[in-house]
């Protein structure tokens, strides 16, 4: 129960507020409902590096590596409710004299692939081979990201010459980042 003093206090404030409000003209506070905050967040994502010797064909039967991570951040409220679009930047830098194929698969909670992208990385030819891949999820595709539960990455050495040994030079580097286009209403 409010004490009488406080009733007076707030009634007085209302009176004073109303008096002053009478002098406020040509304004429309309902516009506040139109407010949209739309920052673009840039975030570094995954990266890895393999040396040419990691693909030593003398000892390795399998010429590929695969790894995956749980990545349910997009289904969490912050992204689920406010992520409007996203752009991923994937950069491969190859200084190995052999070509590679990279594959990224976005899967849902049941392990069903939702989206995949394959990247061909040509062999080193005296200059580092830099391959930049952009993946854009627009508003119609953003649901794919929001349903993603795991992301897997695979890097595979493609057949060719020269053969790689444990003393081969060079490395295959992978870097990635994303811009998340947010919209808070």
């Amino acid at each position: 129960m409010m004490r009488p003093g406080h009733v007076f206090f707030w009634i007085g404030i209302l009176i004073a507020g109303t008096l002053l409000n009478a002098c406020i003209k040509d304004v429309d506070y309902d516009q506040m409902d139109d407010f949209v905050l739309s920052p673009d967040l840039e975030l570094s994502l995954a990266y890895f590096e393999f040396l040419a010797s990691d693909f030593d064909e003398d000892t390795n039967n399998d010429n590929s590596y695969i790894d995956s991570t749980q990545a349910d951040l997009f289904s969490q409220d912050f992204f689920d409710q406010n992520l409007r679009a996203a752009e991923f930047t994937i950069v491969h830098i190859n200084t190995v004299e052999r070509a590679f194929q990279a594959e990224f698969v976005f899967k849902d909670q049941q392990g069903t692939p939702l989206y995949s992208v394959e990247v061909f990385i040509p062999p080193y030819d005296g200059n580092p081979q830099e391959v930049v891949t952009l993946i854009y999820f627009d508003e119609s595709q953003i649901g794919i990201l929001k349903n993603t539960f795991t992301i897997s990455a695979k890097i595979e050495l493609l057949p060719g010459n020269p053969p790689l040994t444990n003393s081969s030079d060079g490395a295959i580097k992978f870097q990635s980042s994303a811009i998340f286009y947010m919209q808070f209403e």
């Binding site: 975030l43 995954a46 890895f48 790894d67 980042s177």
Partner: peptide
């Protein structure tokens, strides 16, 4: 933070699924 380093063979479980995030 520079992101998540994928470790591939070194710390993966059977399903190759890691809790990097």
């Amino acid at each position: 933070l520079e992101g998540i380093e994928f470790l591939f063979g070194e710390a993966t479980d059977d399903d190759f699924l890691n809790q990097y995030w």
